[in-house]
């Protein structure tokens, strides 16, 4: 996604004839992006700009509407077209807490945070060993992890439901912790492996020659290099766990339900009291929105890396 060079200053686009008369530039690799974006902009600037606006509207409008409506009184939210300038209030959020949204948020936080920590604790050593490859044929182990990504969750749901029921672990938040951990582990191992495979081996060899022990290598050499990868992996796992709906709705009832389940229940019980529903939806999406925007670049890198490699 990212080039190593800083973004060049945008040149004013020149409309009109193609620059065929210009002598071909001896563009260095580092100027590649600028050159291509200039050429593109010269050809169809306004059209692409329009497309960008349409996209912005298409993707942002629903979310903006949700946040804005959540801050309106129910009467203002019901008008059509929506009254954008109606007075703002946080009353809907207060109401949500009166309706007992808190335990759902706590369950979601418990399941997401604990499972993310567990995933990292298990995935980092595994990915490290797989990236260093002291054992032959470990590519197969790696592909085993990857292949489990192809198990449809719905197919695992029925046996898991029966097992959990027999163990008396239904409606227990730790069931979700364990399930989310195993669900995210393959992705995490794969991602971390992609990041760790980029650690230069010379550094590791040098550290060993210097007599650094395993813990010191991990802490002083690997950790600084792997930190962005760990952050990206943690974010992706957190978002997946927070958003998970299918296991949560089928394996929990009252005590261990998570916030997406709360939201869906709230929708069916509240009909279309839009302001209240929007407040609930905003509240439930807030953690992933914060997580996503706090580290968008890492997220993008993690996703591209995980898919391409």
């Amino acid at each position: 996604m990212s080039t190593t060079t800083p973004a060049p200053v945008e040149q004013p686009t020149e409309p009109g004839p193609r620059r065929t008369s210009e002598p071909p530039r001896r563009a260095a690799m580092s100027r590649r992006r600028r050159k291509s974006s200039d050429d593109q902009a010269a050809r169809g600037g306004p059209l692409w700009a329009l497309f960008a606006w349409v996209l912005t509207l298409l993707f942002f409008a629903p979310v903006a509407w949700m946040v804005l409506t959540s801050l309106h009184k129910e009467a203002d939210a019901a008008t059509n077209p929506p009254s954008l300038l109606a007075p703002l209030t946080t009353g809907n959020y207060g109401l949500l807490f009166d309706r007992g949204v808190r335990p759902f948020l706590i369950n979601s936080a418990t399941a997401s945070i604990l499972s993310t920590i567990l995933v990292l604790a298990l995935a980092i050593p595994a990915a490290y060993a797989l990236a260093i490859k002291p054992v032959e044929k470990w590519t197969d182990v790696l592909f085993f992890f990857l292949s489990t990504k192809f198990l449809p969750a719905i197919a695992a749901l029925l046996p898991i439901y029966l097992i959990v029921k027999d163990l008396g672990m239904l409606d227990n938040v730790y069931t979700l912790v364990i399930l989310y951990t195993s669900m995210n582990l393959p992705i995490a191992v794969w991602l971390m492996h992609s990041f760790l495979a980029e650690v230069p081996r010379e550094i590791l060899e040098a550290a060993e020659v210097d007599g650094a022990g395993l813990l010191r290598v991990l802490w002083q050499v690997i950790r600084p290099i792997a930190m962005p990868g760990i952050a990206a992996t943690a974010l992706i796992c957190f978002i997946f766990s927070w958003n998970e709906f299918m296991f949560a709705v089928n394996l929990t009832a009252t005590r261990a339900s998570t916030s997406p389940v709360f939201l869906v229940g709230f929708i069916s019980s509240q009909g279309l009291f839009l302001a209240k529903l929007c407040a609930a939806a905003t509240l439930v999406s807030l953690p992933v929105l914060i997580a996503g925007f706090a580290a968008q670049d890492k997220l993008v890198r993690g996703l591209s890396l995980g898919a391409i490699k």
Partner: peptide, 15 residues
């Protein structure tokens, strides 16, 4: 634009 498109991907499907 990329952030906004990503927004739709990050949000829980229930939302």
């Amino acid at each position: 634009v990329e952030s906004l498109v990503l927004l739709a991907w990050i949000l829980p499907s229930s939302i």
